[in-house]
Amino acid sequence: MILTDKTLTAARKRLLQMHFESGVGHIGGNLSCLDAMMLTFHEYVGDEDRFILSKGHAAGALYITLWSLGRLSNDTLKTFHKDNTLLAGHPPASGINDILFATGSLGHGLSLAAGTALALQLKGQSGNVYCLTSDGEWQEGSTWEAMIFAAHRRLSNLTILVDHNNLQGFGSTHDVASMSPLTEKLSGFDLDIQYVDGHDLSAIRTAIDKPSDKCRIIILQTIKGHGVSFMEDRMEWHYLPLKEEQYKLATQEIEAL
């Protein structure tokens, strides 16, 4: 099912609404990866495939993506971050079929994705595994353990999407612990590495569609807070909730995109 601009805009607006109504932050890192997540789910993740969100703090984007597919209701979204909700600040351990693992501690998802991909291979199943990581979590040693494993096992059914928005918890990735350019750091592995505009759906499609017999990494050049001028590329939107005026302005800007 082709992801339309209309559907994507609706998802962006619903993301802002959910975060505003719940008074919850983490908006910047959700907007940076929402486009790629929506595209992956709408066009690539079928029943036989798996998606693992390694950057668990983008749970909002994941919930909205599932909502856009009709798998979570508006009533459920209203419970986001509230007591007695399934929609915690990071993906839950159970209760939502499309969410396989409770992530949130960075550096776990890539290993989980590699294990899933290997399991599918051993079982002779044809599904693909998609894993979305942040860029900051490539500072975790376990991510590199997973990379060694995935490359060595030549997990060609594994596609890793890196939300490379250049901002992490308390500074830019460049200032905190630079791995720039990440493509060079990864180039020693026997992988299929691509670097694309993470807000260009056509470019992401082309990258995912490219045939490969290796594990694939698609580094998505993204903008934290994408689509909202006062959020874009600003670290505080890793954390801040929206005030009412900001919410209205942000919604207008999203509609005008």
């Binding site: 396989l100 290993s111 989980l112 294990g115 899933t116 399991a119 997973a146 494993f149």
Partner: peptide, 19 residues
């Protein structure tokens, strides 16, 4: 390999697939 963190997560994922 000498990578126990990855090994345990891989094991969890494979168990999740019914192995």
């Amino acid at each position: 390999g000498v990578a126990e963190q990855n090994m345990v997560s891989v094991a969890a994922a494979m168990a999740r697939e019914g192995l």
